[in-house]
Design a protein around this nucleic acid. Sequence first.
DNA 1: ACACTGTTGAGACCGATTTAGCGATAACAT
DNA 2: ATGTTATCGCTAAATCGGTCTCAACAGTGT
Lengths: 140, 140
Amino acid sequence: MPNQHLEDSSQVVGQVAVQLRNTRQKEAIRAAFVNANRPLSPDETLTYAQEQVDGISIATVYRNIGALVEEKWLMPVEIPGESTRYEVAGKEHHHHFHCHTCGKVFEMEGCGIQLKPKLPRGFRVTGHEFFLYGICADCN
Amino acid sequence: MPNQHLEDSSQVVGQVAVQLRNTRQKEAIRAAFVNANRPLSPDETLTYAQEQVDGISIATVYRNIGALVEEKWLMPVEIPGESTRYEVAGKEHHHHFHCHTCGKVFEMEGCGIQLKPKLPRGFRVTGHEFFLYGICADCN
DNA sequence: ACACTGTTGAGACCGATTTAGCGATAACAT
DNA sequence: ATGTTATCGCTAAATCGGTCTCAACAGTGT
């Protein structure tokens, strides 16, 4: 049997030394997130960044996302059955909408969840996630 | 750039010809789900099944999970940032609790979600998912 | 009990995603 | 302008979940 540990297959872009220099590439990557204003996958980030810097490579995207996460400018957003997205950090608690046609992930303002699911005794809740699925305005 | 399509990296155990024979392995796998009474990953399933059938292999687990999904005895359960779990089908709409200590996923009875998140106009909702995170009774 | 054939176990293999290595390039202080 | 060295682009390679191959095995009908 290959792996003893059953869990923690979760994967987020790993730690990278914080970037010191301001490169066109890093700027383009930051701009991608600011302009898109929604959580982006590394691939999507690459696509947007390409528009500003020709020839930027996927490795650079991963390196910079890693650095931006480390310096807390980005936050990972995990979606069921999807690869990790990243969004600009510091926003207030909110949830996400996943379009099953184009695959894009959007932010929804506010949380507004109040529910008391029946949990067996002994369980302690520390957080929650909520996702809506459907078709986005563009695909509609 | 390798892949044009940004999305649909999601992966669920594929279609397999429905199993006809009653083997000890298939029994053990079914029993694993019934006894655990919570969604299991293929790896977890293997661990439980090992207890009944010595030397059962991960390939067999995947094959049988695939078959059981195809015959609608199992249903895939996708967890953010985790590999797909499977649970016995036919239960009523409910959500899940993910223990971030042991990584196990538990079922919570009922849904009870009523909320109106602010969605931009043009978005159509077809479904939702909800997850609680925390520490389970065993880990507490 | 026998033959037929579906199922298994073990490891090689797969495709997609992510990371590491390395020589070349460019940011920034001097 | 120059030197230092962080960062880049490229490519190879590591992961990871999952599948395939195939000889050996074991249900099942007769």
